[in-house]
Design a binder for these strands. Structure first.
Lengths: 202, 202, 202, 202
DNA sequence: GATGAATGAGATTTCATTCAT
DNA sequence: AATGAATGAAATCTCATTCAT
């Protein structure tokens, strides 16, 4: 029964992701989600307090998963480059696993229920990345004259925008393209921040 | 009269930017904008067809200005690094000139009147940047094994995320911080994509 | 089984009285009643056809009990004053026995399932009281120039309002206060309607 | 324009009284009120914050008017009997002037937006009546061994119940009946509480 | 140009009731 | 008997937009 129950919940969440991906959060009516899940709209309110909470739940789950992955990667103790590669691989790789989820994430970031909360939820990921980068600086893999936090935002932003480009259909997104994107982002950031970026100054 | 007229129009636009910045597009009521501008809400409909069009107008003006700047920069024929620096300087510099506008832009990107349109409007900027980068590759300033378009998105994304960090109050944003941000982004991208990024491979 | 059964039924009824007393009929959800009774809300529908019927049942039981008492008192053949005293004593005395029930009664009178029905249910009580008063008039205990029915409503109203005052916490309601209230109401009505209320005209 | 405006407001209020009188507050939909007033339902929200506020407004206006009258009567300095007669005359007389209003008042008393507020709003009336009665006791018109407050509730309750009887169609309510009701209530209360209610103990 | 009363489509949410288990 | 997931009717309220003045 709790089996059944959480199935339903999951169904609704998946349905919501599909619907939000298709029409955006605001244009999606609760009835659309229910219909997509094949249930009556009232049922949604057994599992969630509001439409808002559905989106919130999606965000929370995603970020919590991301935090977990980031911390797992951090714990490996691998060189920064390898760690960033692992993270980027996971982050950008998600595009092929669950493009709808990414569509929602990209589309609704700025309104993750009233903006500010995004900060709290994503803090874990950003902190983990910043620690990896700081360690990379300590261990001589990266320049030390930039704020780790700053690099983190840049790195994350580059990836997010690539995701956005895929969402908007502006860049090729086959499996190979994804792999190449990961390499390029990591190369660029690590290369661009290498202690003596000889070639960089031409 | 057309003097007066366009003053009113501008007033409404500025009011809208402040209101959107504060509460987001969806939560902003037409009455809020009118109140902020000190006029009756009906008047807004003399100048704009709809609330949507107000946002659209803000986006269009911004992007058209950005396109113009990008093309002006491109026309200088300077080295890529200098050109990217000029662009980043202008783009990130806007934060100190008109933070409310940036708040709106960052918050509503994904929903610039039904998403897709963002592509059309921003195309000019992206194309100009891509051309600068392609030329940089031709002239030996940058590696040639990456798609210019791809680099463009990465570069743009890094900047946008820094803007986002400022919007969210997550990174210091004094005048010096802004200047440093510009340098770092350009350094990283140009350094990371230098033809022989020796340090990059560690 | 029918033992168990009627226990459950009674439990639900008592729970309903508590909940209705606390939040009023409309604001009380079926789930609240069930929760108060410690059962699943679906079970309520084994014992009652609807939430409405629960209230209806409470009203019916109360009125039917009141009718019975009124008729028992009538049958004693005592003087009117004594009879009204007995009735008032029972009616107002209920406040100390079951205040929650009175709270519900006072709160929901006007909406005893769509108003009109109150008339049918209470008719028995009003008729009995009216007969006592009519007899009091015949036997010279009370003035004959007022409609018995009219006096009944007045008498009943005075008591109901005192109950209301108690419900609203506007009058003291200790045991003595209740006894005094009974005396005063009866004194006033019988005194005020005495055949030659000498003092009444000053 | 403010002419027009308050006309509309008044129209809506009158329409609400008619509709509430007919179907009760809860069964009345906002659309019913609007339809009765001949306007779109949205307009109601220009003048009132909610359906609840409409009822609240009706109550407030009625009670505030009642308070005013009670205080006016009190100020005359007439004998209690005359004062109570004046009040009863006004209070019960309202039945012929505006039966719909009384229907609403009688039906919805107990739920004057969440019960407790009734107390605050009606306090003024009850206090004025209690003062008149207290003065009547001081001046020897009434027995002194009863709480003025208590008498007030009894008096008021008697009247309210007569109103209820009229609302329920249980007592004749022609102009003469109303006049007689006033007399009887006042006679009974003043007679029943006369200092030496000789006949009362008879 | 300017106002703000008026409109009405539309969406969320609640919750009594049903019913398979 | 008992549960609680599932249903879906119903109703409030919001707010962009129109338009008479």
């Amino acid at each position: 029964m709790s089996e059944r129950s959480s199935d339903r919940r999951r169904d609704l969440l998946r349905a919501a992701i599909r619907v939000f991906a298709r029409k955006g959060f605001h244009a999606s009516r609760v009835g659309d989600i229910a219909e997509e899940a094949g249930v009556a709209h009232g049922l949604l309110y057994h599992y969630f307090r509001s439409k808002e909470e559905v989106l919130e739940t999606i965000f929370k789950a995603t970020w919590s998963n991301l935090v977990q992955e980031a911390e797992r990667i951090e714990a490996t103790g691998d060189p920064v480059r390898a760690q960033l590669h692992a993270f980027a691989s996971m982050y950008l790789g998600s595009w092929r696993d669950d493009p709808d989820l990414d569509r929602v994430l990209v589309r609704e970031i700025a309104r993750s229920p009233e903006v500010g909360r995004r900060v709290e939820q994503s803090r874990g990921v950003f902190d983990a990345l910043a620690r990896m980068i700081a360690r990379g600086q300590h261990e001589g893999e990266l320049r030390t004259d930039v704020e780790p936090k700053f690099v983190t935002w840049m790195f994350y932003g580059a990836m997010e925008e690539i995701l956005t480009a895929w969402v908007l259909g502006q860049l090729p997104d086959g499996p190979d393209d994804v792999a190449r994107a990961v390499d390029t982002v990591v190369d660029t950031v690590c290369g661009g921040l290498a202690p003596r970026a000889v070639g960089a100054r031409g």
